[in-house]
Design a binder for these strands. Sequence first.
DNA 1: GGCGTCATCCGTAAATATACCGAATTGTAT
DNA 2: ATACAATTCGGTATATTTACGGATGACGCC
Lengths: 213, 213
Amino acid sequence: MSIKIAIADDHRLIAEGVQNMLRYSSEVEVVAIYPDGNALLEGMERVQPDVLLLDIGMPGMQGDELAGIIKQQYPAVKIIVLTNQDNIFYIKNMLQQGVNGYVLKHVEKEQLLQAVKSVYAGEEYIDGLVLDRIEEDEEEQKRVAENASLLSGREKEVLQLIADNYTTNEIAEKLFLSRRTVEHHRESILSKLDVKGTLALVRKATELGLIRS
Amino acid sequence: MSIKIAIADDHRLIAEGVQNMLRYSSEVEVVAIYPDGNALLEGMERVQPDVLLLDIGMPGMQGDELAGIIKQQYPAVKIIVLTNQDNIFYIKNMLQQGVNGYVLKHVEKEQLLQAVKSVYAGEEYIDGLVLDRIEEDEEEQKRVAENASLLSGREKEVLQLIADNYTTNEIAEKLFLSRRTVEHHRESILSKLDVKGTLALVRKATELGLIRS
DNA sequence: GGCGTCATCCGTAAATATACCGAATTGTAT
DNA sequence: ATACAATTCGGTATATTTACGGATGACGCC
């Protein structure tokens, strides 16, 4: 018995491509194609595939929400995200929703087939490039954490207000501090980040991920 | 006689999708699929299609270069860019290379077929969303031009140096001006952009496209 | 207890930036 | 020719930032 596959993709071209790729594989069978999230949810009520290839982007119903809903309602259905999105936030979001695979659209026939079989067998299948992204992100997170510990809590607070274009006096008022205290924090920050001037300060802080922008 | 189509796309999935989409159209015929630029150039020596669907991204050989080379060597071949790139620079680059069509990958079967037939008939076929992008860009260009005329040449010069984190004294030295003159320019810029402080100044200037960053 | 960091505050000084004033020259457009 | 904008320079004053010095109390860690 072949593995039943459904495709949910708002790009008709992709759906056709997947269909064509798997056309001559006896191990798998495309049983449904859905062009949007609503069609997918309706279709799932009638028939559940073994593996769902998912890439839906539509207003109010993002792919990650869809993945969550389906994982909740049909836990037996394996989900492979098949997208061009290599944005780390998107990736993490999807994985958090409990998807079983993540494949980018540059995928080759054999790889796609392998991904389908892997998740069907209960394994995870994550594209190598996606794994790279995740690793990069973890290093980035570590780096930011180190940079963050560079500045004390109060300094970070002052830094944020500086970045928000407040003057030292205004910051002192906001934080109920003496002007001199804020000036002192300011000096410490400049010294710790090793820059000259407010402009360079804010730039470096942004670069280090120390402030929300 | 059907229209001969070649597909050049480093995404196998897309090539398969196009093939599948056009499978049952008697008016067109896919005669070749190339996974990269080199294969495309080699293949073109042997056989020229009527229409080339092009989306190649590879190091050292971007799609726009490829389009230019092919347009030069085989002027009779109509080129349709079939890509997800809706970046305005990419679009303008491609159109400048003289491509005959520009279609995004969310394309439907009928639209793709229509695009092929249009360019084959000697017309242009540009995706609606791409046209929107071009229009947006024209408005943006106009806006930037207006903003640019807001500041005089010298002011823009000073502004750039301010953004490069030079102090007024340093700028004066660089431009062989009195410190007071540079201060005056600085005031004018602050006043014209209606902001307070260097940080906000540079931010607004960046937003208005007045400085290279 | 002692040590270090953090957070708070102060003094003094110099450098920088902002603000408003005026004015001369030059070139361009009306 | 006259008017206007751009560019240049000056004075004065204040606000802000940067830089150096030191001090105190709180708090956690060894």
